[in-house]
C-alpha cells in the first residue's frame, strides 16, 4: 500500500515535468537555429513569415501589472478593515464577502464585463470598441483582489498575539497597531500575496480573451487593444499542426511555464527569508 502512495506521488511529480517536456517536444521547430529567443523579440506578421510573440509578452505584462497596481490599494484597504480597522462583527462579513468573490467563476467576470464595463469604457474613456488593456486590467483587478486580500489578512493577523497585546496596552489605536506593528511584521506574507496576485493575473485566460481585444500589434497605450500569451494559446489552437504559427503557442506555453517556476521559487525564497529572520 505504501508503494502505491509512493507511485501516485512520483507520478504526479513526473506529470509536472512531462508537461514541460511535451511542450519542448511539440515546439521543436522553435529550437532549430536558436529561433526561440528571436521569437521572444519579434513581432507577429504572418505575411512576412514572422511569428514572434513579443507583442503578447508585452500585452501580458502591461495588463497584469496594471491590474496589480489597481488592485493593490483596494486589496490592502480591505485587508486593513478585516484585520483590525472595522468593528469585530464586520470583520467577519468583510472576509465572507471576499470568500464569495473568490468563488465567482472567471468566465462570469468576463461575461458581465462585456455587457456592463465595456460600454462604459467605450463611451467615457476610449473611442474604439472598448476592448482594451484598461478594461481587461479593471476586471482582472477585481478578479485577483480576493487572493491578495486573503494573503494580506493572514499576514496582518499572523503577528504574534503578545506583540499585539503589548501594543494595545501602550495605548495604540487600531490604525497605529496596523501601521507600526502588523504591517512591518507581516510584510513577507504581504509580498507573497502580491506575487500570487501577479501570477493569477498573468495566468488568467478568459478575461483577457474576452475583453482585451486580442489585436496582434504591440500596444502603445492603455487604451490600445492587446493580446496576452494565454489568449494567444486559446486563439491559435485551431490552425495547421505543422506550421510555425502553431509552434508559437508552445513558445507562449514555455514562457508561462518559466514564469510560474519563477513565481513559485520566489515565494519559496520569501518563506525562507521569513523563517530565517524569526530567530
Amino acid at each position: 500500500m505504501g508503494v502505491l502512495f509512493q507511485l501516485a506521488a512520483y507520478g504526479c511529480g513526473l506529470l509536472t515535468i512531462a508537461v514541460l517536456v511535451m511542450m519542448f517536444q511539440l515546439g521543436r521547430p522553435l529550437f532549430v537555429d536558436g529561433q526561440f529567443f528571436s521569437l521572444l523579440s519579434q513581432v507577429w506578421q504572418p505575411g512576412q513569415q514572422l511569428y514572434g510573440i513579443y507583442p503578447m509578452i508585452i500585452g501580458s505584462i502591461r495588463i497584469s501589472f496594471l491590474a496589480l497596481a489597481l488592485s493593490f490599494p483596494v486589496s490592502l484597504g480591505t485587508a486593513f478593515l478585516a484585520a483590525g480597522l472595522a468593528p469585530r462583527p464586520m470583520q467577519r462579513w468583510v472576509l465572507a464577502m471576499v470568500r464569495l468573490m473568490a468563488g465567482i467563476p472567471t468566465v462570469v467576470y468576463g461575461f458581465v464585463a462585456i455587457f456592463l464595463l465595456v460600454p462604459l469604457v467605450r463611451e467615457h474613456v476610449s473611442r474604439g470598441s472598448g476592448l482594451n488593456i484598461l478594461t481587461a486590467s479593471l476586471v482582472l483587478a477585481v478578479l485577483i483582489a480576493p487572493t491578495m486580500v486573503v494573503f494580506f489578512v493572514n499576514g496582518l493577523r499572523g503577528v504574534d498575539q503578545s506583540y499585539c497585546r503589548a501594543t494595545d496596552a501602550l495605548g495604540a489605536t487600531a490604525v497605529q497597531r496596523l501601521l507600526y506593528l502588523q504591517l512591518p511584521q507581516g510584510w513577507p506574507t504581504i509580498v507573497s500575496g502580491v506575487i500570487m496576485g501577479l501570477g493569477r493575473a498573468m495566468g488568467d485566460t478568459l478575461v483577457s480573451l474576452m475583453v482585451a481585444g486580442n489585436s496582434i500589434g504591440v500596444p502603445t497605450s492603455i487604451v490600445d487593444s492587446a493580446r496576452t500569451l494565454t489568449a494567444h494559446i486559446a486563439l491559435v489552437i485551431a490552425a495547421d499542426f505543422a506550421s510555425m504559427e502553431f509552434a508559437s503557442i508552445f513558445a507562449c506555453g514555455l514562457v508561462l511555464y518559466l514564469f510560474t517556476m519563477a513565481v513559485v521559487i520566489g515565494l519559496r525564497m520569501l518563506v525562507h527569508l521569513r523563517t530565517g529572520s524569526d530567530r
Binding site: S162, Y163, R165, A166, G171, Q185
Partner: peptide
C-alpha cells in the same frame, strides 16, 4: 478615548513581551 486611557494606565504582562 481608549488610547488616552491606556497611555495613563500602564501594564506589564505575565511573560515579558518586548516588541520585535
Amino acid at each position: 478615548p481608549l488610547a488616552t486611557l491606556r497611555r495613563s494606565v500602564g501594564m506589564v504582562f505575565q511573560a515579558p513581551n518586548p516588541l520585535p
